[in-house]
Simulated scan of single mutants.
Amino acid sequence: MKLYGRSHDRQSLARHAGDLSAAGGVRSVVLDDGSERGIRTLEFRTGGGLSAARPVRHRRSAAPR
């Protein structure tokens, strides 16, 4: 991962932050309220506090031949 212009591996990032989720992350969420019920999204988080959710689009698999 590149952070502040320097490349870091998992171990060096853990030495600086203690918790790798402090650098950001992604989690899968299923919405459960109103018309959005059942919609799967991915929630992206940055270490600076910004977060955004995007719906997961399912690809249709081709029929077996």
Rank of each mutant, 00 (worst) to 15 (best):
L3Q: 11
L3R: 12
L3H: 11
L3F: 11
Y4H: 11
Y4N: 13
G5H: 02
G5E: 02
G5K: 04
S7P: 02
H8G: 04
R10N: 01
R10M: 03
L13P: 00
A14D: 02
R15Y: 06
H16F: 08
H16W: 08
H16A: 14
G18K: 03
G18W: 04
G18P: 01
G18A: 04
G18I: 02
D19G: 03
D19T: 04
L20C: 00
L20G: 00
L20E: 00
S21N: 06
S21E: 06
S21F: 05
A23V: 12
G24V: 05
G24W: 04
G24D: 02
G24P: 02
G25E: 01
G25Q: 00
G25K: 02
G25N: 01
G25R: 02
R27H: 11
R27G: 08
R27E: 12
R27C: 08
R27A: 08
R27T: 10
V29F: 09
V30N: 07
V30P: 03
V30F: 09
V30H: 08
L31G: 09
L31Q: 14
D32L: 06
D33T: 13
D33W: 08
D33S: 14
D33V: 13
D33F: 11
S35K: 08
S35V: 09
S35E: 08
S35L: 06
S35N: 05
E36N: 12
E36T: 12
E36R: 13
E36A: 14
R37M: 08
R37P: 01
I39C: 08
R40N: 06
L42M: 10
L42I: 06
L42N: 05
L42P: 00
F44L: 09
R45W: 00
R45E: 03
R45G: 00
T46I: 02
T46M: 04
T46P: 01
G47E: 09
G47T: 13
G48A: 15
G48M: 11
G49A: 03
G49L: 03
L50G: 06
L50P: 01
S51D: 03
S51V: 07
A52M: 06
A52E: 07
R54H: 11
R54C: 12
R54K: 13
P55L: 05
P55V: 14
V56R: 11
V56I: 14
R57H: 09
R57T: 09
R57E: 10
H58S: 14
H58E: 13
H58T: 12
R59C: 07
R59G: 12
R60C: 10
R60G: 14
R60S: 14
R60V: 15
S61K: 15
S61E: 15
S61R: 15
S61P: 08
S61T: 15
A62T: 15
A62D: 14
A62S: 15
A63H: 13
A63V: 14
A63Q: 13
P64H: 03
P64D: 03
R65C: 11
R65Y: 13
R65V: 14
